[in-house]
């Protein structure tokens, strides 16, 4: 009798166990599993192994450089060497350093942060939402607000180009020298836009940027696709 009871108990445990196992493995992949899979499937170039403290020291050294070109080059070299985003103690983006309204500039970057994780039309919608568009196209916006909206929108688009360049440098598709020339030009244009320079002053700068980027576009897009 005891044997029968034991068998019955064992079979209940096994049944319940198997039901739960079947229920919990319905082809769902947990966030951590997904991350683990994506991490292993993405081939990344060799990363330098340096302690967190040493990396922080390196970042501080980059931020302490006096010229903007040197700071940009140093940061890009850091990204390439350590295969990670450059997060400095100074929360002020490079372009906001010389702007009169630093806080407004910093907030624009902060609010747009999540847009850069999106793609295609969604990314565009996100930028326009952050800037405060009421319509899909600039031409349909209130003429009184069009100037300010276009300035902030172009700044976010330029930052998108910068992000693509940084990814390409990190993935060793573009060398630091060429990349820093382009990033420096982007920063210059953003500064000019936020400082209130006119379209006629900004156009030639953008043309120069297009000339620099003409050779790098394919590498930028390849790096962007790899990182997705």
């Amino acid at each position: 009798m005891k044997k029968i009871k034991g068998l019955i108990f064992l079979s209940i445990v096994l049944l319940i166990g198997s039901i739960f196992a079947a229920g919990s493995s319905a082809g769902e992949v947990s966030e951590t599993e997904r991350n683990a899979t994506s991490n292993t499937s993405t081939k990344s170039p060799v990363k330098k192994t340096v302690s967190a403290e040493e990396r922080m020291k390196l970042r501080d050294e980059c931020d302490a450089k006096t010229s903007r070109v040197d700071r940009i080059k140093c940061r890009l070299q850091y990204m390439r060497d350590h295969k990670e985003e450059f997060v400095s103690k100074d929360t002020l983006p490079e372009v906001c350093r010389t702007i009169a309204d630093k806080e407004k500039c910093r907030l624009l970057y902060q609010r747009s942060h999540d847009c850069y994780n999106q793609r295609g039309i969604e990314k565009n919608k996100c930028f326009k939402r952050v800037v405060g568009f009421a319509r899909a196209k600039l031409k349909d916006e209130n003429p009184a607000q069009r100037n300010q909206l276009s300035r902030e929108y172009v700044v976010l688009l330029l930052y998108d180009l910068q992000e693509r360049l940084e990814k390409a440098i990190e993935n060793e598709k573009i060398d630091v020298e060429t990349g820093s020339e382009a990033v420096n030009k982007i920063t210059e244009i953003k500064e000019a836009i936020l400082a209130g320079k006119t379209k006629d002053e900004i156009r030639p700068m953008f043309q120069e940027l297009k000339n620099i980027l003409s050779q790098l576009k394919e590498e930028m897009d390849a790096a962007e696709n790899e990182s997705q």
């Binding site: 793609r119 295609g120 039309i121 990314k123 565009n124 919608k125 930028f127 326009k128 899909a136 196209k137 600039l138 031409k139 069009r146 100037n147 909206l149 276009s150 300035r151 929108y153 172009v154 688009l157 330029l158 998108d160 180009l161 693509r164 836009i193 006119t198 379209k199 900004i202 156009r203 953008f206 297009k210 980027l213 576009k217 930028m220 897009d221 962007e224």
Partner: peptide
């Protein structure tokens, strides 16, 4: 309904969008 939004998948598309938007800077 929002087909007027440009897609920003490639750097070329971003550059085109910048080009068009700069026109509205005064």
């Amino acid at each position: 309904s929002s087909e007027e939004y440009a897609s920003l998948d490639s750097s070329d598309q971003v550059i085109t969008e910048i080009d068009e938007s700069i026109e509205y800077i005064e």
